[in-house]
Design a protein around this nucleic acid. Structure first.
Lengths: 354, 354
DNA sequence: TTGTAAGCGTTATCAA
DNA sequence: TTGATAACGCTTACAA
């Protein structure tokens, strides 16, 4: 019990608060510099004798350096900023999970900022995070404010984009192979006999993944060989009636066949399922459905929801991995890493019987 | 373009990196102290003239103080540590969401640590977070390591426990009224005519909410007036067969009536639903089911899952609120805040027809 | 009302 | 090989 700091007047038991490097130095009878050297360069430049003395003192005081002070001095904080468009979206959470794990393993901590789907706060988020000296960003954001981003990049902080691309941005990009995944789903519906297809997504709002999926859908249905007819619908969260009408119109168009629906994420899938319930249509009988994102509940909704599974954990882990590589100094032009989706065929896309 | 810091040798455009208080001082032609005063005490002790000069300089340089440096000096970081048992659990995410919002509004940022259901890492989490000078903790953890916690408390950091109580801990506690909620669910099953009940939860592992729910269940079924028979089962994630057997045994016991199941959270609910699917029993017909946690998908599983909704957003917001009050200096003995659950009756607990 | 200077807990640059 | 000492960016006595 060597160190007594009585600054806080009423210090009671020995050390109030954490031990500092000065405490350790005093305890070991050496200078702060020596302690710092022991901690950072252990092997080089240290006599065996002193090394052990410091080691003992560190252990005795249960000392560990203050990351705050280190950050101030070194300019590096061992912090990674994660900006998420919407923690409510299962996809975001899954990515978060993968990223958090990879960061922890690499000794980084995550600072979280949730946009709650409010794109206007993107800049706020990035600024708050930069203020805390985060060393880099993992962004799964709306992408309205490329300026804020460019700003982060200018500060030399590496950025990894997940799922949502910002075109004018020099950054690694990790995402599902949207085009491939859409084809997977659409072709599945086609093979099951659905000929009149509807792609339902959230309002585009410049979100690249939505746009890419919609474009891939249009491309697929317009291939003459496909023998399909397709259209798209943007479903606003509060516009249930609009979605109902869109589905009714789809069915009308499908007069001679069965209508099939492809949804762009789990949130929309649920909206469509709700709408179908209102309309009284049976999944896999009156209408075929394939949705993005394979949630744990997908197998149990109706006859089982057919989905396109995203390797979410992978995505998160890879995103974090890319960032950490950059933090370790990797110099490379921006990479694009696209992972394939997997079709999980279930009852909702049973072969259409006319 | 006044400030030129050429330290990084190849400084190109004016200021590399963020502007510091020294830059502002130079720009305004005043001392750092004056700038600091302007920022922190704006009104007091400042001549109008100088105030505006500083104001202009701050704006010109887009200066904002470094929270890291402030933290080092003040000992306060505007950071709150959130430790979550399992980000995979929808309940945790919902709480996270509420807490994150409240923190942002109060100007705090969240540092996230996910345990991934590995209780052994609780201490690691708390230590990592304290190292970063978080001002307080919101904990939704396993609670195995009360020592780590007590340690945090000893450092004078306020702690709020969410959902999981640590008995030997002086801390605010925010949670669902488990006893009330269980009665709500059990009574509902009883009124619907289910007489042989099974409570399925995850392995207890000293998690208070699980224990409280199980105890409340046992208490309810043992009231003679209830006219019920009940038992409990702990379902391990990988033991599907065990769960199947437990359900079959339940049905055997219920020979003359219909069996009802109460599940302790969404994860378990899904396990039970999967098991029932394997057994080929129909929800609300062969077996009644009420589960904790009203997820967005609950209405669409089978005939609709009856659930006990937790006010998760409230829970998160209140937890953050409690913490922030403490950070503002509120002195009060530890509080217990219990919120009521709400029964969402759906098809899975239709009145039993024998 | 303003400025000077010390110090928060580190690390890095010099001497010794 | 080790130890003073000066930063990092900020706040706060204490002087002026």
């Amino acid at each position: 019990m060597p160190s007594k700091k009585l600054k806080s007047a009423t210090a009671t038991h020995a050390t109030v608060g954490r031990a500092t490097i000065a405490d350790v130095a005093r305890e070991a009878g050496v200078s702060k510099a020596t302690v710092s050297r022991f901690l950072n360069h252990r092997d080089k430049l240290l006599s065996k004798d002193i090394a052990t003395r410091v080691e003992v003192a560190v252990a005795a005081l249960a000392y560990s350096p203050s990351p705050m002070a280190q950050a101030l001095k070194r300019g590096r904080s061992r912090l990674i900023g994660l900006v998420v468009a919407d923690v409510t979206n299962p996809f975001s959470v899954a990515v978060l999970r993968g990223a958090e794990k990879a960061c922890q393993e690499a000794g980084y901590l995550l600072m979280l900022f949730n946009l709650g789907n409010d794109g206007a706060r993107e800049r706020e988020a990035i600024e708050a995070l930069t203020a805390y000296q985060v060393e880099g960003f993992i962004l799964n954001t709306l992408g309205r404010d490329a300026g804020a981003l460019a700003n982060a990049a200018r500060h030399g902080k590496p950025v990894v984009l997940v799922d949502r691309r910002h075109h004018d941005m020099q950054a690694d990009f990790v995402s599902l192979d949207n085009a491939g995944a859409v084809r997977l789903g659409a072709r599945h519906l086609q093979k099951a006999g659905y000929r009149e297809l509807l792609f339902v997504s959230e309002p585009m709002k410049d979100v690249s993944s939505r746009e890419e999926r919609a474009a891939a859908f249009r491309a697929f249905v317009s291939e003459p060989a496909a023998g399909l007819h397709g259209s798209t619908f943007e479903s606003a969260p509060d516009d249930e009636a609009g979605l109902d009408r869109a589905l009714q119109a789809l069915r009308a168009r499908a007069a001679d066949g069965l209508p099939g629906v492809l949804t762009s994420n789990a949130v929309v899938t649920l909206r469509v399922v709700a709408s179908l319930a209102r309309l009284g249509w049976r999944l896999g009988a009156d209408v075929g459905l394939v949705g993005f994102d394979d949630t744990e509940w997908a197998p149990f909704v109706g006859p089982g929801l057919s989905t396109i599974a995203q390797p979410t954990d992978e995505l998160g882990r890879i995103a974090a991995g890319c960032l950490i590589e950059r933090l370790k100094g990797l110099q490379l032009p921006p990479r694009q890493i696209l992972l394939a989706g997997t079709l999980m065929a279930r009852g909702s896309s049973q072969p259409a019987r006319i």
